[in-house]
Simulated scan of single mutants.
Amino acid sequence: MLTVLVVLPTAALFLRVLDDVSTQRDDTELKQQGVEYLVALAPLISALADSQSQSLQGVTAEPASLTSAVARVADADGRLGQTLGTETRWTDLRDKIGRLPTVTGNSQTIYQAHVEVGDLALQLYSEVRENSQLNMDTQNDIWYLQESVTVNMPETVTAVSRMSDLANMVAAASGRAAKSALQVQLGIEVAAVQDGVAELTDNLQAAADDTESSTLAGNTVNNLDSFRRGVEAANRGANFGGEPDVSTLVTAQSTLSTALSALATVLLKEMSTLLDERMDELNYRQIEAWALLGVAVVLILLATFWARGSASAPATRSADAGQTSRDVSVHVDGQSGQSGPAAGTYGGAGNPYDQVPGYGDASNYGNGSAGRERSGALR
Rank of each mutant, 00 (worst) to 15 (best):
L66Y: 00
S214R: 15
I110V: 03
R379G: 14
L260S: 10
T88R: 12
G309C: 03
G368W: 00
L38N: 09
R374A: 08
A11Q: 07
L274C: 01
A64V: 13
S226G: 02
V356R: 06
V197W: 10
G347E: 01
D26H: 14
G58L: 00
S339K: 07
V7A: 01
Q123S: 11
T251A: 14
S272Q: 13
T3N: 12
T316W: 01
E36D: 03
A64Y: 03
Q24M: 05
D333S: 14
D119A: 15
S226F: 01
R236C: 04
N203E: 06
A42H: 02
F305Q: 03
Q52S: 11
Q24E: 10
Y353Q: 07
V151Y: 07
D320G: 05
D333C: 00
A49N: 07
R129W: 11
A177N: 07
R72N: 02
Y37F: 14
T67R: 13
D19E: 11
T220G: 03
S55P: 07
A315T: 09
S164N: 09
R99D: 10
T345Y: 15
G322E: 09
T211W: 04
E232D: 11
V231G: 01
E87A: 11
E199V: 12
S53C: 02
D27K: 10
I300D: 01
G371H: 02
V190A: 12
R236P: 04
N106M: 04
T102Y: 12
V59A: 06
A291L: 09
W290N: 06
V4P: 02
V221C: 09
S363E: 05
Y346C: 10
I110E: 02
A289H: 00
D27E: 13
N106V: 10
S132L: 03
S310Q: 11
Q123W: 14
A259D: 04
V266I: 10
L204D: 01
K269N: 09
E36T: 02
N140R: 13
S363R: 05
Y125V: 15
Y284K: 08
G85Q: 03
S329D: 05
L38T: 02
T88A: 12
Y125Q: 15
A173K: 01
V332S: 05
A167W: 02
S272V: 09
G196V: 00
T215W: 05
T67D: 03
D165W: 12
G322F: 15
P244R: 09
A362R: 09
A198I: 05
D141A: 06
D95S: 13
S254C: 05
V149H: 12
L224P: 11
E232K: 04
T86R: 04
E288L: 08
G218N: 14
V103P: 10
R285N: 11
A69P: 08
G105H: 04
S55W: 04
T88F: 06
G78S: 13
L44C: 09
D276E: 14
G337F: 08
T10N: 00
Y284H: 12
I142V: 11
T324L: 08
S51A: 10
S213R: 01
N223Q: 11
Q139R: 15
G294P: 00
L8Q: 11
G242Q: 05
G58I: 04
T251G: 14
A259R: 07
A191I: 05
